[in-house]
Structure formats: structure tokens, C-alpha cells
């Protein structure tokens, strides 16, 4: 079953840098993935949106792209909260961050992020990454039913 043919993927992007937000949007376009991109600018907003959406399970995102360095509530805490929340932990979380710190890498996996991707500097590479994410998580991987 190909979600991208039937419905657009619901993606929650948690990113505070507007530039990066626009970039991701454009890249999704370039990657030709039909998506609905929801954006949360900080950790708090992210959780609020998730909980709201949670009231109607059908509205939860298919994928969460999470930056670590966020204002108000740090991305690391958001990750922990999501993965501890029974209603949210099944949603794949792809940590997309500019941090290259080993500690972040280790902690991210420890807190059960599904994967960790360092934001590539190069545009082409970024497009490739997003394509791959889309292919992998939305096509190859079977996501739990809502």
C-alpha cells in the first residue's frame, strides 16, 4: 500500500530556524513527496500540537522530524516525552540536527529516537536525505495503524 499515492503524509517538523523550515519544505518538493508539513517552532508548541492532535488519533503525524536545539523546550526533552507517551511513542522520530556531538548522538538513541541524521550542508545531499527518509519511512517501512 503506497501512502503517497493515496494520501499525503502528515509530517511534523519541529524546527526553530525559519531558514531550515523553508529549506525542508522546498526539499520535500524537490524530492517529490506529497506531504502535509506541520511545523512547530519550539518544543512546547510541538507537544501542544501533538496532544491536540492526539485527541483525534487520526490526526497524529506519520513522521516527526525533530531538531535538538529548540527554545522553550529542548528537543531532547521533546524526544523523551514523545517516546514515553503511550499514544505518541509509535510515531517514528527522525532527529535531524546540526549537532555533531557524540553525546547527542548517544543520548538520542538512548531515548529511543528512530534515527539520527546530521543536517547536511550540501543542498543536493539534503535532498537525497529527505528522499531517503521519505522512501524509507513512508514507503518501505510499515507504520502502525492509527
Amino acid at each position: 500500500m503506497k501512502y503517497k499515492l493515496v494520501t499525503a503524509v502528515e509530517v511534523l517538523l519541529v524546527e526553530d530556524n525559519p531558514g531550515d523550515v523553508r529549506l525542508i519544505q522546498e526539499v520535500f518538493k524537490e524530492a517529490k513527496i506529497r506531504n502535509v508539513l506541520h511545523v512547530a517552532r519550539d518544543g512546547e508548541e510541538a507537544m501542544k500540537m501533538l496532544h491536540l492532535k492526539g485527541e483525534n488519533p487520526t490526526r497524529l503525524p506519520d513522521l516527526i522530524l525533530l531538531d535538538l536545539n529548540l527554545p522553550k523546550k529542548d528537543g531532547r526533552d521533546v524526544l523523551k516525552e514523545i517516546k514515553k507517551d503511550d499514544s505518541l511513542k509509535c510515531i517514528p522520530v527522525v532527529v535531524l540536527t546540526s549537532s555533531i556531538r557524540d553525546e547527542d548522538l548517544i543520548e538520542t538513541y538512548k531515548n529511543n529516537a528512530n534515527c539520527y541524521i546530521a543536517k547536511p550542508v550540501d543542498l543536493d545531499r539534503l535532498i537525497k536525505v529527505v528522499q531517503n527518509i521519505g522512501e524509507f519511512w513512508l514507503d518501505i517501512v510499515k507504520l502502525p495503524p492509527r
Binding site: V121, L123, L126
Partner: peptide
């Protein structure tokens, strides 16, 4: 410095594209 640089590079490339 990485951050702004990434912006510059990425959007310039996007622009190009």
C-alpha cells in the same frame, strides 16, 4: 558558524537549481 553557512550554501544552491 555552521548554521548560517548552511543557510547560505543551501539556498544559493536551491536558487541555482
Amino acid at each position: 558558524l555552521q548554521e548560517p553557512l548552511r543557510m547560505i550554501t543551501s539556498f544559493l544552491q536551491l536558487l541555482q537549481r
